[in-house]
Amino acid sequence: MPSLKTMARRERRQSRFQGGHSLCRGCGVPIAVRAVLNSIETPVVVVNATGCLEVATTRYPATAWNVPWLHVAFENAAAAASGVETAYRALRRRGALPVDGPMTFVVFAGDGGTYDIGLQALSGALERGHRLLYVCYDNEAYMNTGIQRSSATPFGASTSTSPAGLESFGKLERRKDITAIVVAHHIPYVAQASISHWQDLSDKVARATSMDGPAFINVLTTCQLGWGHEPRLAIRIARLAVETCFWPLYEVVHGRYRLTEGPLRKLPIEAWLRPQARFSHLFAPENRRWLAEIQPQVDREWEDLLARCALDASASDAAREPPP
C-alpha cells in the first residue's frame, strides 16, 4: 500500500497534475485528484466529465494535466473512457502500441456527472465490464454552474435551486445511494472514501486498480463556496462527515461489504452540519423538527451498513471454514 513518501516520490518523478489551475482557494477536488493519481504505479489516461475540475484545470491555452487527458461532454465520460480502454486493448492485441505495458484508465467526474447526467453512460460501462477506475468527486451539488442541487445533495442543504428562505426550506429529498446502485452492477470493486483520509483513499485506489474489471470510488470532496465554510477548514469538515457516520468509509469487494475505517467515536450529526452555511437554517428554532429528522436517518443508514458488513464478514468466515 502506498505511503506518503512513495506518493511524493511518484509526483516528484512525474507530476501528473499541476498547480496553477483555477480551482478555488482551498478546493477539495485537487486533493482527491493528486491522492488518486499518485497512488497509481502504471501510466494513466484520464477522462474527465464536464464540471469544476474540467473547466478550471484546462483554461485554454494551458492545462494542469500532464497525462493523456480527454474531455468529451458532461454525460458521457464513462462511455468515452470505455472507448479509450477498448482501443487500448485492440491495439495491444495487434501489437500496435508504441510502448507495450499495463495502463490505468481513470475517469474523474463530479456528482452531477455521475449521479445524474452521466448515470446512463456509467451504468453501461460498468455492465460491459471495462477495466477502468471511475472516481466520483462528490461535493454534493452542481458547483461549477452556481451551486444547484443534484441528487447527491443531502437532505436539508440549501442550494440555489433548493434555497432556504421564508417560503422554502432547503432540499427536501434525500441523497441518492449511488454506491448501492453501482454495487448492483456486480463489479469487482466499489468504495466510498473521503479526502480527509488520504491513506484509506490511497489504499482503495491501489486495490481498485488491481481488479480485473470496473472499479468505482466515491470520494467526499469539500467545496468551500457551496458548503459555506472557511477554506482552511476543508479537511476538518470532511473528517467530521466520517466521524458522524454521515459518510462512512467502506468498500464492497466482489459484492462483500467491509468497513475500512470505523470512527473511534460516533459524533452527533450536528457536529458535521454546524460549520457549514448551507445547513445554518436548520438551527433556526422553527426548523428544529427538520433537524431532528436527520440524526435518525444517519443512524438508520449506519446501522444498515454495519449489519451488511457483519453479514458479509460471517459469510466469508463460513466460506473459509473447512467442510465438516
Binding site: G20, H21, N66, V67
Partner: peptide
C-alpha cells in the same frame, strides 16, 4: 487564432495563482 482542441500537457504551472 491558435489551433484549439489539443494543448501542450502540463502547462498550467506557468499560470501564477499566487496573486489570489
Amino acid at each position: 487564432l491558435a489551433v484549439g482542441a489539443v494543448v501542450a500537457a502540463g502547462t498550467a504551472g506557468r499560470t501564477r495563482t499566487g496573486g489570489w
